[in-house]
Amino acid sequence: RRVTVRKADAGGLGISIKGGRENKMPILISKIFKGLAADQTEALFVGDAILSVNGEDLSSATHDEAVQALKKTGKEVVLEVKYMK
Rank of each mutant, 00 (worst) to 15 (best):
R1F: 05
R1P: 05
R1E: 02
R1I: 03
R1N: 00
R2Y: 10
R2A: 06
R2K: 14
R2D: 02
R2E: 08
R2P: 02
R2G: 00
R2H: 07
R2V: 10
R2F: 15
V3S: 01
V3D: 00
V3E: 00
V3N: 00
V3T: 01
T4M: 12
T4D: 05
T4S: 07
T4L: 13
T4W: 10
T4V: 15
V5N: 00
V5E: 01
V5T: 03
V5S: 02
R6W: 12
R6E: 10
R6G: 06
R6M: 14
R6P: 08
R6A: 11
R6D: 08
R6L: 13
K7W: 08
K7Y: 09
K7R: 10
K7H: 12
A8I: 13
A8L: 14
A8D: 14
A8S: 14
D9V: 13
D9T: 14
D9R: 11
A10G: 14
A10N: 13
A10I: 15
G11R: 11
G11C: 11
G11D: 13
G11M: 14
G11Q: 14
G11Y: 10
G12C: 10
G12R: 09
G12D: 14
G12K: 10
G12Y: 08
L13W: 04
L13Q: 01
L13M: 09
G14I: 00
G14Q: 06
G14E: 01
G14H: 00
G14P: 06
I15H: 03
I15V: 06
I15C: 05
S16F: 08
S16R: 12
S16E: 15
S16T: 12
S16P: 04
S16Q: 15
I17G: 02
I17T: 06
I17N: 02
I17Q: 02
I17W: 04
K18G: 10
K18E: 15
K18M: 14
K18T: 15
K18C: 15
G19M: 06
G19N: 01
G19W: 00
G19Q: 03
G19A: 02
G20A: 02
G20C: 02
G20I: 01
G20N: 01
G20Y: 03
G20S: 01
G20K: 00
R21E: 06
R21F: 11
R21S: 13
R21K: 11
E22Y: 02
E22K: 00
E22N: 07
E22G: 06
E22I: 03
E22F: 04
N23T: 12
N23M: 11
N23I: 10
N23F: 13
K24V: 01
K24E: 10
K24H: 13
K24I: 00
K24Y: 05
M25T: 10
M25A: 10
M25H: 06
M25W: 01
M25N: 10
P26K: 00
P26L: 03
P26E: 02
P26Y: 05
P26Q: 03
I27A: 04
I27D: 03
I27Q: 00
I27N: 04
I27M: 04
L28D: 05
I29P: 05
I29A: 03
I29H: 03
I29V: 07
S30T: 11
S30I: 03
S30Q: 09
S30A: 12
S30F: 00
S30V: 05
K31P: 03
K31Y: 08
K31I: 00
K31N: 09
K31Q: 10
I32N: 02
I32D: 04
F33S: 14
F33G: 10
F33A: 15
F33Y: 13
G35P: 06
G35H: 07
G35K: 07
G35C: 06
G35E: 05
G35M: 01
G35F: 00
G35V: 04
L36F: 11
L36H: 13
L36T: 14
A37H: 03
A37Y: 00
A37K: 07
A37G: 10
A37N: 08
A37R: 05
A37Q: 05
A37D: 05
A38D: 05
A38R: 05
A38G: 05
A38Q: 05
A38K: 04
D39K: 03
D39M: 01
D39A: 10
D39F: 07
Q40H: 07
Q40L: 11
Q40W: 03
Q40G: 08
Q40T: 09
Q40P: 05
Q40S: 09
Q40V: 08
Q40Y: 06
T41N: 08
T41A: 10
E42K: 15
E42Q: 15
E42R: 14
E42S: 14
E42V: 03
E42P: 06
E42D: 14
E42F: 02
A43G: 13
A43Y: 06
F45E: 12
F45R: 14
F45I: 08
F45H: 12
V46Q: 07
V46E: 12
V46F: 04
G47A: 04
G47C: 01
G47H: 02
D48G: 02
D48P: 02
D48I: 04
I50A: 02
I50H: 04
I50W: 02
L51P: 01
L51E: 08
L51S: 06
L51N: 07
L51D: 07
L51M: 11
L51Y: 06
S52I: 02
S52D: 02
V53I: 11
V53H: 00
V53M: 04
V53E: 03
V53N: 06
V53A: 07
V53G: 04
V53R: 02
N54M: 00
N54L: 01
N54R: 01
G55A: 04
G55F: 00
G55V: 01
G55L: 03
G55T: 03
G55I: 01
G55S: 06
E56D: 10
E56Y: 14
E56K: 14
E56A: 11
E56I: 13
D57N: 08
L58M: 13
L58S: 05
L58H: 02
L58W: 05
L58D: 03
L58A: 02
S59T: 15
S59V: 07
S59R: 15
S59H: 08
S60N: 15
S60T: 14
S60A: 13
S60I: 08
S60E: 13
S60Q: 13
S60Y: 14
A61R: 04
A61E: 00
A61Y: 09
A61M: 08
T62Q: 03
T62V: 01
T62C: 06
T62G: 05
H63Q: 13
H63W: 09
H63C: 14
D64V: 09
D64T: 10
D64H: 12
D64F: 11
D64E: 13
E65V: 05
E65M: 08
E65F: 06
E65H: 08
E65W: 01
E65D: 10
E65L: 03
A66P: 03
A66M: 03
A66W: 02
A66G: 07
A66N: 07
V67W: 10
V67H: 07
Q68S: 12
Q68F: 07
A69N: 03
A69F: 07
L70I: 08
L70F: 11
L70A: 02
K71V: 09
K71C: 11
K71H: 11
K71T: 12
K71E: 15
K72I: 10
K72A: 14
K72V: 11
K72H: 12
K72D: 12
K72C: 12
T73P: 11
T73M: 06
T73W: 07
T73L: 08
T73C: 14
T73S: 12
T73G: 13
G74W: 04
G74A: 10
G74K: 10
K75E: 14
K75Q: 13
K75D: 14
K75I: 08
V77A: 11
V77T: 10
V77L: 09
V77G: 06
V77R: 06
V78A: 15
L79Q: 06
L79P: 07
L79F: 08
L79E: 06
L79R: 04
L79Y: 00
E80C: 08
E80T: 10
E80D: 09
E80H: 08
V81T: 05
V81P: 03
V81M: 00
V81I: 06
V81F: 00
K82T: 11
K82Y: 06
K82P: 05
K82Q: 14
Y83G: 15
Y83Q: 15
Y83W: 09
Y83K: 15
M84H: 12
M84R: 08
M84N: 12
M84E: 13
M84W: 15
M84P: 11
M84G: 12
M84F: 13
K85L: 15
K85V: 08
K85W: 10
K85I: 10
K85T: 13
